[in-house]
Design a protein around this nucleic acid. Structure first.
Length: 603
RNA sequence: GCCCAAGUAGCUCAGAGGUAGAGCAACGCCUUGGUAAGGCGUAGGCCGUGGGUUCGAUUCCCACCUUGGGCUCCA
């Protein structure tokens, strides 16, 4: 065993394999212990709960005496005390004791969280591991660093209130997040990386690139600027075109429904607190802004006689939805109240489910490939609170799982994370600081059609209840654009870029040069290219180029007298993303841009 | 909703118990320039909102709103 690791204990869970080397997780877990030791010294009477290593670093949860809270300044105090403890090279000492003994020990220390953890252990656990770091004692399996001298490169990051055991009905504890590295350079790199993430932040780029803004006049509802709308409409065009190829029928259903509709669907019972209610001058009827499209599509299907010959019917609608999200949860474009889903509902027979879901997974993969992103798939299974029979859930879950496996997709299973009416496949993406967000979703539903009394006439002449597949592939346009902005760091591929080509005249007061620039713009516009001429007066050519670069315009063309004199229609083209600069005939440039757009090249 | 922060010019930010500043952007004039910021000038602020303390509050205190980082939630 390496001598900088202290052995793991044999208990408090199954024995861990002794690692061959000191890993970052061990270092960080040890740092969590050291932080708890510092907190207990600085705040006598503080109780400590749990403190694991995480992907980014570590945390520890505390209850401070008299219900006190940590404030940000406390972090530097705690960090300073940790440095002192590190300097003293205090050994991490392991001890194994009986469960009863450990319970007494923590009981005497008035560490009620630890006592609770011991009480919750299974009967088969007879002994537990204890680690001592100086006076600090923790219940722990280890392993740990040999002594605190290894914990010099530590940084505390933030404080947060967290519910005990992750349940909002419980009291809130104080959590301190931190991180630790082996070397100072690694910590510096970590900090530099956070800076880079800040530069990619879609809220920052949204302002810089003039895509959208948020206003306190309507929290959670973005205002889309002309540049942002170009991206928005390009994605709308994309989903329309691709839907059309796959036999979807575009429909439009109301934004406002009476509350009874949501009682029928079950949403009122499950999500009443997130629904915006609207009053009408007609007393007696209360309305609500639609938080999802399903009920509208159910009513549409139910508005006429349906035959098995018509199925599957695929209704598509990219509609505005409103959800009254809890105030603390709003987050730029990634979590909004005004949400626009590229929604669709497929009404089909049991026999058609497999094909439909396969087609959808394939469709999703096609779309994401065009966007140049790779989502992670998640299969969410039956939740505790649900409608329907176990048999229906068995069939629905296996249909989704088979589709994933049939396409050779990697996926994780999220037990209990399905909706109240059915299981789902979710497609997740990561934002600039590594948080995961759901984009697409495919949900299988045996419940809502029967709640709405839907039926179709089968080949046997009898009424049958259709199955519904709910799906949104981009997810919400808001979130999708937010994620794409961060994914490309604002350098959108040509087909999505708000301005695709900026034409910079060298001499902006020479009519022939400006005229040429404008004629180039017209040639490009005729070819469907979004081109602009940078002809704001009083600006030098260099400044214009710089503006185009900071606006991340994919192509910048500079034209001047020299080009006119040559008269060969060859211009100088800068490719912002490739970082190249070359001379090219105008026709060639236009052809190249047309191809990039048509093929939706996302390099 | 809960814990911690932040809200000052269009943007990025400085400031201080005596009534507000910079850079960029905007506007005007000058500059006629060949590949990432030419010069000078002008205008621009209910210092998030509402209370309180004070002779005086943008500054201190309280509440609320919005935004950010977590937690919880996410059809």
């Amino acid at each position: 065993m390496p001598d900088d690791i202290v052995d793991d204990s044999a208990e408090a869970g199954p024995p861990l394999a002794v690692p061959a080397e000191l890993t970052l997780d061990i270092l960080r877990h040890s740092a969590a212990h050291l932080m708890a030791a510092a907190v207990v010294e600085l705040y006598p009477g503080a109780e400590y709960d749990v403190g694991p290593a995480t992907e980014e670093g570590f945390f520890y949860n505390f209850r401070l005496p008299d219900g006190a809270h940590f404030v940000e300044e406390d972090l530097s105090r705690i960090e300073a005390r940790m440095r002192e403890l590190a300097k003293r090279r205090i050994p991490f000492e392991r001890e194994v004791m009986s469960r009863d003994e450990a319970r007494r020990l923590f009981s005497d220390l008035q560490q009620t969280f630890k006592v609770d953890i011991i009480d919750r252990m299974g009967d088969e656990v007879a002994e537990v591991g204890i680690y001592r770091t100086g006076d600090f004692i923790d219940l722990c399996r280890g392993p740990h660093v040999a002594h605190s001298g290894r914990l010099r490169t530590v940084k505390l990051l933030r404080v947060a209130g967290v519910y005990w055991r992750g349940d909002e009905r419980n009291e809130q504890l104080q959590r301190v997040y931190g991180t630790a590295f082996f070397e100072r350079e690694q910590l510096d790199a970590f900090i530099a990386q956070r800076e880079e993430a800040r530069r990619r932040d879609h809220r920052r780029l949204g302002v810089e690139l003039d895509l959208f803004h948020l206003s306190e006049h309507s929290p959670g509802s973005p205002f889309w600027h002309p540049n942002g709308m170009v991206i928005w409409n390009t994605l709308e065009d994309l989903r329309r075109e691709e839907n059309r190829k796959r036999g979807y029928l575009e429909v439009k259903t109301p934004l406002l429904f009476d509350v009874d509709t949501y009682k029928t669907s079950g949403h009122y019972e499950n999500y009443a607190e997130n629904i915006f209610f609207v009053s009408s001058r007609d007393e007696g009827t209360q309305f609500a802004l639609k938080p999802m499209n399903c009920p509208g599509h159910m009513l549409l299907f139910g508005s006429g006689m349906r035959s098995y010959r018509e199925l599957p019917i695929r209704y598509a609608e990219s509609s505005t939805l409103h959800r009254d999200e809890r105030s603390g949860t709003l987050h730029g474009l990634l979590r909004v109240r005004h949400i626009t889903q590229d929604d669709a509902h497929i009404f089909c027979t049991d026999d058609q489910i497999q094909d439909e879901i396969h087609g959808m997974v394939e469709y999703a993969n096609h779309l994401y490939a065009m966007l140049g992103v790779t989502p992670r798939a998640e299969l969410s299974t039956r939740p505790e609170k649900r409608l329907g029979t176990e048999d229906q859930w068995d069939r629905a879950e296996s249909a989704l799982e088979q589709a994933l496996q049939g396409h050779g997709m990697d996926y994780v299973i999220s037990p209990g994370e399905g909706t109240f009416y059915g299981p789902k496949i979710d497609l997740h993406m990561t934002d600039s600081i590594g948080r995961s967000w759901q984009m697409g979703t495919i949900q299988l539903d045996y419940q809502m059609p029967s709640r709405f009394g839907l039926s179709y006439v089968g080949a046997d002449g009898q009424d049958h209840t259709p199955v519904v597949i709910h799906r949104a592939l981009l997810g919400s346009l808001e979130r999708c654009i937010g994620i794409l902005t961060e994914h490309y760091a604002g350098h959108f591929p040509l087909w999505l870029a708000p301005v695709q080509c900026e034409i910079v005249p060298v001499q902006d007061d020479a009519p022939e040069v400006v005229g040429y620039a404008h004629s180039l713009r017209e040639v490009m516009r005729a070819a469907g290219i979004r081109a602009t001429v940078s002809d704001k007066p009083g600006q030098r050519m260099q400044a214009r180029i710089r503006d185009a670069m900071t606006q991340k315009v994919p192509y910048v063309v500079v034209v001047g007298r020299n080009d006119l004199e040559r008269g060969d229609d060859v211009v100088n083209v800068r490719s912002t993303r490739a970082g190249t600069q070359e001379n090219m005939a105008v026709a060639e440039l236009v052809a190249r841009m047309e191809r990039e757009v048509a093929e939706r090249i996302s390099t």
